[in-house]
Computed example of a mutant assay.
Amino acid sequence: MQNAKEFDLVVYGASGFTGRLVAEYLVKQYANDSSLKWAMAGRNADKLAQVRDEIGAPADTEIVIADADDPASMQNMLARTRLVLTTVGPYQLYGSELVAMCAKSGVDYVDLCGEPVWMREMIDAHHTTAQASGARIVFSCGFDSIPFDLGVYHLQQLAKQQLGSSITRVKGRVRKMRGTFSGGTAASLKATLVAAKQDPIKMQLLLNHFSLTPDFQGVEQPAGTKPYFDEDLDSWVTHFIMAAINTRNVHRSNYLLDYAYGKDFVYDEMLMTGPGEKGEAVANAVAADKSMSGDKGPKPGEGPSKEERETGFYDVLFVGITKDGQQLKVSVSGKLDPGYGSTSRMIAQSAICLVKDAVDTKGGIWTSAPAMGNKLIKRLVKHAGLRFHQE
Rank of each mutant, 00 (worst) to 15 (best):
P222H: 06
V11I: 11
G339K: 00
D268G: 06
S291H: 06
K160M: 12
L189W: 01
I63P: 03
G301A: 11
D111W: 03
V110L: 08
G184Q: 05
A23H: 04
K160I: 10
N284V: 01
D360R: 11
S188Q: 14
T247P: 02
I347D: 09
M177A: 11
D324W: 05
W236H: 05
W236D: 02
G363V: 01
T128H: 05
G303C: 07
V174Y: 02
G279N: 09
D315R: 08
A191E: 04
G385L: 14
A196C: 12
G274Q: 12
V250F: 03
K378S: 15
G224H: 00
S350D: 08
R248P: 00
V107L: 07
A79E: 13
G151Q: 08
E24T: 05
I321W: 03
V138T: 05
K362S: 11
K356I: 10
A288M: 08
L233D: 07
Y267H: 07
V355S: 12
K197I: 07
A369P: 15
V219H: 09
G303T: 09
A72N: 10
S96W: 13
G19Q: 14
G95D: 13
V219G: 15
R309T: 06
L207P: 11
A371F: 00
G325S: 08
Q157Y: 06
G134D: 02
H154Q: 10
A100S: 13
C113K: 00
I245G: 01
V22P: 01
F313M: 03
G325E: 11
C102L: 14
G364F: 03
G56C: 12
T61I: 08
F265G: 10
I365H: 15
G373A: 15
T180D: 05
M1N: 13
F139C: 03
V10L: 12
G279F: 06
Q390A: 05
D357V: 12
E115C: 02
T361S: 07
L48R: 00
K378Q: 15
Q75I: 15
Q29L: 07
Q156P: 12
S35R: 04
K329C: 11
V359K: 08
A4M: 12
A130Q: 03
S140D: 01
A348C: 13
Q390V: 06
T247E: 02
K296D: 03
M101H: 13
S350L: 09
S145D: 01
A187I: 07
H126G: 05
D199W: 06
E97C: 11
G114H: 00
K197D: 15
A351G: 11
A45W: 08
D124I: 06
K47M: 04
E62D: 04
G303R: 14
L271G: 00
D357W: 10
S368C: 15
C353W: 04
R252E: 07
F265H: 11
M122Y: 02
V170W: 00
V10K: 09
P338I: 01
